[in-house]
Design a protein around this nucleic acid. Sequence first.
DNA 1: CAAATTACCTACCAGTCGGTAAGTAAATTC
DNA 2: GAATTTACTTACCGACTGGTAGGTAATTTG
Lengths: 203, 203
Amino acid sequence: MAQGTKDQLLLTARNLFAERGFYGVSIANIADKHGLTKQALLHHFPTKEKLYGQVLKEISEELDDLMAAARSSSDDPKTQLMSLFQGFVSDTHGEAVRTRLLMRELLDNKHRAETAGAWYLKAFLKNLVKMAKTLPGWENVPDSQALALVYQLLGAVNYYAISQPTLRGVFGAKGAKALNDCYIDQLNRVMHAAFSPPPTLMK
Amino acid sequence: MAQGTKDQLLLTARNLFAERGFYGVSIANIADKHGLTKQALLHHFPTKEKLYGQVLKEISEELDDLMAAARSSSDDPKTQLMSLFQGFVSDTHGEAVRTRLLMRELLDNKHRAETAGAWYLKAFLKNLVKMAKTLPGWENVPDSQALALVYQLLGAVNYYAISQPTLRGVFGAKGAKALNDCYIDQLNRVMHAAFSPPPTLMK
DNA sequence: CAAATTACCTACCAGTCGGTAAGTAAATTC
DNA sequence: GAATTTACTTACCGACTGGTAGGTAATTTG
């Protein structure tokens, strides 16, 4: 059952880091949730940073899986991209936790030493750009233009995802629900407009 | 010079909180930057939370100013909204700091006690919705639909703004510059599409 | 069955956290 | 010019931080 404990600690660490951030969580907090001492945690992970790094690594692999799933879901690049971005808005618990953690990482990685963590993003963005450039009319567009397209959508859905608790606090559960219905429509409308027409072609 | 020291401490606190987050900064860190002891800081602000609250209050007032400026910049609501959102993307230092801090607040306020901090957003969103509903064809749309519109754009520009250091790290200064040029075009194109046609009218 | 490994524990460390108490030197007020 | 207020200081406090050292009971391995 060694692997079991380790995996459970990783999961708890992910949830807590997503909720309160790297500095807002102590290794004792994480161990406590399993009735363990922090030394037991340090037996499985040599340092707090390594533990965090492991969480980040797992998540970056999940992002790859997400990309692969989107790619195999359809032959139409437009459908692929739309289902991918819609996935971020769906309020699965796991999705929300991942998005929160990655948003924190985006805010923090400039300052924490392990810049290696930032490169999960590079691979993910590269895949996204590649996918966008299979859209009809986007084949010969410069990379930066395709990146601008996907980054804009990525920003919209990620921001919306992490805002969910606050939005519920401000507008209530009913208001948040109404917003959610509108948001998906609005997102689809904008994606439709953003994807379908090739922008001004000049290189 | 009392007010001077206090204001300087507030500014430093804002910068550090934006950079490292509430838990990543100690009051001693802030005081050190002015050659003071943390007890000197506690003389001006009774607790760390109060200091943070003060920073947040100032920022929420600045958001009001930003709204007012946008409103008085033009008579055309489309122009008003476009200049407002473009403002978030402009990489002024002050703007970047504010955006980072508000993003952190969005992630944290669920957990920190003072939920009062979240209500800066309510006023700002209310103003945005009001402005969006003066767009031609949007007058009779439900609030939640207008909110979906502005929140999507808000998410895109805020996420982009906080990503700037990471993007420079991943793509280099040159790549980030190329992206920036494309991004503003892309943003304008999407805003144009999102604002001008009234969505399907049914209520 | 002996040896080694695993999975934990208690005890401890130096350093930092936010905050309090009490004092002081200088400026302001009456 | 005496009293008060302002703007700090040093000296603490208990709680907590990440991490080390060393031990133990149970399991796995040879």
